[in-house]
């Protein structure tokens, strides 16, 4: 009996030792056959239990159980080890160079000038301004005369105009004709609108000047609207556009459709007023023209200037978009070179 016990104990030691040499699934299988298979000592011993003497059975039974539990525990540990190792090997094989470029999906973009327009719409919508659009091909009356620019007036020199072959029809040189159109539609209601759109001027086509460009104009008409209201509204717009600390200044200017008229500059957002290439060293950027609506324009719009007053302001968004993104050529906007558009 002692002899059998000893054999079983030795088998455990032999099994554990044999397991150390096992390194893969195949040798593990062979080991399983040898120590836990049909002809293994464990199974043989179980098979011969019936032949043992009655008093020997519990002793040998316990010993063989211990052997089996011991072998199985060692096997489980080994199996876990082999599994981890082989998974590790797979991971190594599957490892990517994560610095390779990703596969680009096709991405669409909004045109940069439309982006700027949307930003302006949003800011003015928050202040209660609605959007009003009017024709790009206009009558001379709406483009000039109703804006207090009668034929042969010196102020006509301010715009280089495209004329059509139809007498009295021009390509609008500014979005201002919309002022009189919206007034005629809404009189005598108060008005707070922005007038966005494409305008056209007879100019050289260069990196800095275009024949077609987008303007946004604003118009406020009501009772008791003042220059101070204009300043406040435009300051709010500048702060929303250029940052909370944006500084502005107003200079006298001239537009036939406003009186008094002014030009608003904003402190250069690139250099913070220190002077740089964008602001040509002056620290200021011209962003819009503005003024109190001229009594003649109010009259043409159907408002009595003795009762109503208003202000208007206009800006070209091509130029501000150029500055915002440091774009070198204004013609990119309408040439639609994909290499340009893709950057937005």
């Amino acid at each position: 009996m002692l002899e059998t016990e000893g054999k079983l104990q030795a088998e455990l030691a032999r099994g554990i030792e044999g397991l150390q040499a096992v390194g893969n699934v195949e040798s593990l299988e062979a080991w399983k056959q040898e120590f836990l298979g049909k002809s293994s000592l464990v199974m043989q011993t179980y098979g011969s239990m019936a032949k043992l003497a009655k008093e020997e059975r519990p002793v040998i039974g316990k010993a063989v159980n211990q052997l089996k539990v011991g072998l199985e525990a060692a096997l489980a540990e080994k199996e876990e080890g082999i599994k981890t190792a082989s998974q590790q090997e797979t991971f190594t094989k599957e490892t990517l160079d994560v610095t390779l470029p990703g596969r680009k999906p096709r991405r669409g973009r909004i045109h940069p000038l439309h982006l700027t327009l949307r930003q302006i719409y949003k800011i003015f919508a928050d202040m209660g301004f609605q959007i009003y659009r009017s024709p790009e091909v206009e009558t001379d009356d709406f483009n000039f005369t109703f804006l207090n620019i009668p034929p042969y007036h010196p102020a006509r020199d301010m715009w280089d105009t495209f004329y059509t072959d139809k007498e009295g029809v021009v390509l609008r040189t500014h979005t201002s004709p919309g002022q009189v159109r919206v007034m005629r539609e809404r009189a005598p209601e108060n008005i707070r609108v922005i007038l966005p759109g494409t305008t056209m001027r007879y100019e050289q086509l260069t990196a800095r000047s275009e024949i077609e460009f987008i303007q946004v104009e604003l118009l406020v008409v009501g009772k008791g609207i003042t220059f101070a209201d204009m300043r406040g509204t435009l300051n709010d717009f500048a702060r929303r556009t250029f940052g909370e600390n944006a500084r502005t200044r107003l200079r006298p200017s001239f537009f036939p459709f406003t009186e008094p008229s002014a030009e608003m500059d904003v402190q250069c957002f690139v250099c913070g007023g220190e002077g740089c290439g964008v602001c040509k060293g002056t620290g200021w950027l011209e962003i819009l023209g503005c003024g109190m609506v001229h009594p003649t324009v109010l009259r043409y719009g159907g408002y009595d200037p003795e009762v109503y007053s208003g202000f208007a302001a206009g800006m070209g968004i091509d130029r501000s978009t150029l500055m915002r993104y440091h774009i070198d050529d204004i013609r990119h906007f309408r040439n639609n070179d994909i290499r340009f558009l893709e950057q937005f």
């Binding site: 108060n190 003042t226 200079r251 008094p260």
Partner: peptide, 23 residues
């Protein structure tokens, strides 16, 4: 008014927020 205000200085005119009734 334009003559007076431009010489008076636009910078000296206060900035206010619109206070008329919204259309």
């Amino acid at each position: 008014i334009e003559e007076i205000s431009r010489v008076y200085g636009y910078e000296r005119i206060a900035a206010k927020r619109l206070s008329d009734e919204l259309p």
